[in-house]
């Protein structure tokens, strides 16, 4: 029926909970019993090497892949029982592939995020336009509203897709590598914007990341995956330890604290491998 049919108000019910997920492609199992939960207002980072199953896990969480085992619950309701359009009003996903066919404008792309809220013959109302423009504004894209999506840089395009997800007004955002290929400034800005959404709009955010320092800075919880299984799951300080990371990434890792902020700081250390001479 409507988004209201998915109860989103009880704070004790996690926005999203996955239990013992097994999933994969025909003949290729990818995930082996992964569990997680994320509360409204929380950001969960999923980290791990390439091929650990991060993107597959997101596909299971957004309902586009049916797990071979385990359950996914959205605000306490099994995700398989929720109609597609209701799901689209509650969960917004941004994948890694963001190719667009045909010359749509940036505003048109962001307004597509309103589709799950509109009937077949409804035009976007001033209210929908306001939502789209504030989503564009949040990612600093308002000046590009009338440009064709093909004319934008990769980083700008990425932000357009994040703005489209925002225009869906979701309770849960599932982001696959939202900061890949972005420069330092935009990595910080995008993650800060989603942090704001956690705080201001009680959004639950799940994001896969390669950047461990970004995960340490912005995420409330971190899930560390290797070969489709959970290595560690908890707060950044609990998960992002030298021991865990060396085990998962099979390289030497230094974990310390940023002397000026006290934030967790992860660096490749390469103790065993030859490096430059740092004596000077």
């Amino acid at each position: 029926m409507s988004a209201a049919s998915i109860e989103t108000t009880t704070p004790t019910v996690p926005a999203m909970r996955a239990h013992a997920i097994h999933a994969g492609y025909p003949g290729v199992p990818v995930l082996h019993g992964v569990s997680l939960q994320v509360l409204s207002g929380e950001m969960l980072a999923i980290v791990g090497p390439n091929g650990a199953g991060k993107s597959t896990l997101l596909k299971v969480l957004n309902g586009s892949m049916i797990p071979t085992g385990g359950t996914v619950e959205l605000f306490g309701k099994s995700i398989v029982s929720i109609p597609r359009r209701d799901l689209a009003r509650t969960i917004a996903s941004v994948g890694q592939e963001n190719a667009v066919a045909f010359r749509f404008t940036v505003l048109e792309i962001v307004l597509m995020g309103r589709a799950p809220h509109l009937g077949a013959f409804h035009f976007e109302s001033p209210h929908d336009l306001e939502i789209a423009s504030s989503a564009l504004d949040r990612f600093g894209l308002l000046h590009l509203a009338g440009r064709h999506i093909q004319e934008l840089s990769g980083g700008e395009r990425k932000r357009v897709f994040l703005a489209r997800a925002l225009a869906q007004q979701p309770r849960v955002a599932l982001l696959d590598e939202p900061t890949a290929f972005l420069d330092l400034k935009h990595v910080a800005e995008i993650l800060a914007r989603f942090r704001e959404l956690c705080v201001d709009a009680a959004m639950a955010v799940v994001a896969t990341m390669h950047d461990l320092n970004a995960a340490a800075l912005y995420a409330d919880r971190v899930l560390l995956l290797k070969d489709g299984a959970t290595v560690a799951y908890g707060t950044p300080a609990e998960v992002l330890t030298a021991d865990h990371l060396q085990r998962v990434y099979e390289t030497d890792v230094y974990v310390g604290r940023n002397p000026s902020t006290g934030a967790l700081m992860i660096l490749p250390a390469a103790i065993a491998a030859p490096t430059r001479n740092f004596a000077d």
């Binding site: 586009s64 597609r84 969960i91 994948g95 749509f104 792309i109 589709a115 799950p116 509109l118 077949a120």
Partner: peptide
């Protein structure tokens, strides 16, 4: 015509269209 908006969403790719509620 009834599916004109769905055809717009298909421009984002099958997966994105499905995530926006299109069967």
């Amino acid at each position: 015509m009834y599916h004109a908006r769905d055809l717009n969403l298909l421009s984002l790719g099958d997966e994105s269209a499905a995530e926006l509620g299109v069967d």
